[in-house]
């Protein structure tokens, strides 16, 4: 899998300052951490790569046969874990994971295997609301990984989690990520540094003064 961002511009509707102005970036297979201040554009980058946001200018190209942001692209290539509220509240944990696998046309047996790896076998039939924050996050990661995505996007997957949960997540991501897949993790959690193949420092994209201006 290969992703390339060429001269990407993005500004949120109603915002005065753009998040990206002519961003050029190439992502390669392996785990890449996107690090930087809050609001520097890490999550935006993930959404742009998934096609959940459309760049105002510039181009995002991938080696996928599907157009970035199209339903097929999202179904077959993308595994996305958002910061919060990732799971379908009315479906059990196992159903949440199986749904993503079915949509991608993957192997439903992966569900049980991943839930086991992430220590959620006992909770497979539980509704997400009965799980703790860490368990919910692990279930989200199970769902994203179960369909063997070409691009795995994790937005602050360990924020607010204890060391044990962080360790489990790091290990499972490292071990189960398909070899040709790209994993992009937006985080400022130093505990994830050991699993990274590459670290993108977003502070270099945006000078501190500019960043302080956006915060103001």
């Amino acid at each position: 899998m290969r992703i390339e961002l060429q001269k990407v511009h993005y500004r949120y509707p109603g915002a005065e300052t753009p998040v990206f102005e002519g961003l050029d970036l190439a992502l390669h297979p392996g785990i890449t951490l996107a690090k930087g201040f809050s609001g520097c554009g890490k999550s935006t980058l993930l959404r742009l790569v998934a096609g959940l946001l459309k760049p105002l200018r510039g181009k995002i190209t991938t080696s996928s046969p599907h157009r970035v942001g199209s339903p097929r692209y999202l179904r077959d290539e993308i595994g996305f874990v958002f910061q919060q509220l990732n799971l379908l509240p009315l479906a059990s944990v196992a159903r949440n994971v199986r749904l993503a696998v079915e949509m991608a046309g993957g192997d439903p047996d992966e569900t049980a295997k991943l839930l086991g790896l992430l220590g959620l076998s006992r909770y497979a039939k539980q509704k997400p609301s009965r799980l703790s924050g860490g368990q919910q996050q692990r279930a989200s990661i199970a769902r994203a990984l179960a369909k063997k995505p070409g691009i795995l996007l994790l937005d602050e997957p360990t924020s607010g989690l204890d060391d044990l949960n962080t360790c489990v997540i790091s290990r499972v991501v490292r071990e189960t990520l398909p070899p040709d897949s790209i994993c992009l993790i937006a985080t400022h959690d130093k505990r994830l540094d050991p699993i990274a193949d590459e670290i993108l420092d977003f502070n270099t994209f945006l000078p501190v003064e500019e960043h302080l201006k956006t915060l103001a």
Partner: peptide, 13 residues
């Protein structure tokens, strides 16, 4: 809205 957006992010047309 959030649920619908989440389903779209899974690839639901």
């Amino acid at each position: 809205a959030y649920l619908l957006a989440l389903l779209r992010s899974f690839g639901t047309p």
